[in-house]
Amino acid sequence: MKIVVFVNHVPDTETKVKIGADGKLIDPTGVNFMLNPYDEIGVEEALKTKQQFGGEVVVVSLGGDPNKETLRKALAMGCDRAVLLKDPAVRDSYAVASSLADYAKEYGADIIFCGKQSIDYDDAQIGGLIAEMLGIPSVSVVVKLEIKESAIIAEREIEGGHEIVRSSLPAVITAQKGLNEPRYPSLKGIMDAKRKPIEEKVPSAVASRVEVGAMSKPAAKAQGKIVGSDASAAAELVRLLHEEAKVI
């Protein structure tokens, strides 16, 4: 089976957002970047799929040279090959998805894994965009996956429950926490990953469809009110919620 997993290189969850000189992007100095947590789940599922059906897992990231670090991590987990679609320019989701879809098509992917969302811009749209561009089905926010010969049964998380989805293959799956427990790279995996080449390709330019303006920080909250220090404060708290905040 030809398995593709798309991974994004994102600021670590502890990152304190400092707006950069252009007023639009964050200042990357001192920011640690990592493999997007949902994409790590995607990588694990891709590797499990290969264990079941054989074939090859190609991990692909679009971005600049720093993305190689994330590709190495995926190689260390066990992916066979890595491809960097090299474009350090800032693109919108549509432009990114379009280049990723082109790659998947050229490669002839049988199944594509993404994360359910990138934790930088929290878009949660690339999986669906790629699938529609390729004219194939997709299942998002997947917590359970069973792959058969030419169909899949997936369970996706929705508000207040789960949906069981039947889909044909090829398809795009976007991974949600709970789908699996991503493996830690073994020492051998880490050593092997250093030797595996990262293929570089230049994706064709695609016009953006969304213009991103200035970034700002949400207004800081005024200092809250400490109502008390034991059970005797309960009545006052409930009164405030009822009469001042009017939320109960």
């Binding site: 989701s93 878009d123 749209q125 969304v210």
Partner: peptide, 23 residues
């Protein structure tokens, strides 16, 4: 931007050749 809306919106955007602002 519910689980249904987030799932369907990117596909609608591509079909309409439009851009999507999410969430």
């Amino acid at each position: 931007a519910s689980e249904m809306g987030k799932d369907v919106a990117p596909r609608v955007a591509v079909k309409l050749d439009g851009g999507l602002a999410a969430g």
